[in-house]
Write a protein that binds this DNA or RNA. Structure first.
Lengths: 129, 129
DNA sequence: CTTGACCTTCCCGTGACTGGAACCCTCATT
DNA sequence: AATGAGGGTTCCAGTCACGGGAAGGTCAAG
């Protein structure tokens, strides 16, 4: 399979697939004309990467997870550790964003949103009261 | 005030303060020795920026908000529009992260986390069954 | 006079790509 | 045989909002 077909199949942009090769995650063969040729195991890896990235794992996490995936002697505790660390990051980010959302929501509610200049949002940002 | 004091006062790193000057957000005066000298209105702007950034507004949003802040003839609806668009982004991001958190949570719960290789997390990423 | 704490500019790196230029390969049509 | 469309290739620059670090100027204190 050429990169275009792989892109269609995996849903990953060709640019991304090449990038994953650049950083050593997926190594396709090459045809005589220089085109990348992907085997089924390459496609499998790319799908793995796509799912891991969709869960928000960093590329380095993905590298670790792939290595574990391909290691028959892995301990599931190692996988769980990576996942738990990532979950903690996600939850921290959610907490940050929730705080922003709450503040933004209050400010927006307090703002008349008409053609007058008075605005609690700007008052707050300006250090207000 | 020199940049170090401003950094202490605003809580912004000196690097960040210089960066804001680079991109034209805050323009301090210069002493004869080339040192930046910040007036109270500069400090005020930097505090404004710090608060806006803490609410997650992009730099471009900050630029817009500062312009509105300094425009006595603004309409609060313009401010509200910017804030609402940003809130929508924040909420979208929260939704994404919540989905990740839920999936990660389920997978982590299902993983034994012992020294055996069997792992539902990797099974899921691998496209499992 | 030197030390140390400031300050300056400049350039590179971050993460995970995305866009675009310039070029090659293959097949089908004119 | 030339042309055009639609693949593919490499390489370079840009994104966003800074942070790290080098090389050097400035200033007050001991």
């Amino acid at each position: 399979m050429n990169i275009g077909d792989v892109s269609t199949q995996t849903g990953l942009p060709a640019k991304t697939i090449r990038y994953y090769e650049d950083i050593g995650l997926v190594k396709p063969l090459r045809d005589d004309n220089g085109y990348r040729r992907y085997r089924s195991q390459d496609i499998h890896k790319l799908n793995f990467l796509g799912r891991a990235r969709a869960l928000g794992f960093t590329i380095e996490d993905c590298r670790t997870l792939m290595a574990l995936y391909e290691d028959d002697t892995r301990a599931s505790s190692d996988v769980k550790k990576v996942a738990r660390a990532h979950l903690a990051q996600v939850e921290a980010k959610i907490a940050d964003l929730n705080a922003m959302r709450d503040t933004l929501g209050h400010l927006i509610d307090a703002c008349a949103g008409d053609d007058r200049p008075d605005c609690p949002i700007l008052q707050d940002l300006g250090g207000k009261a």
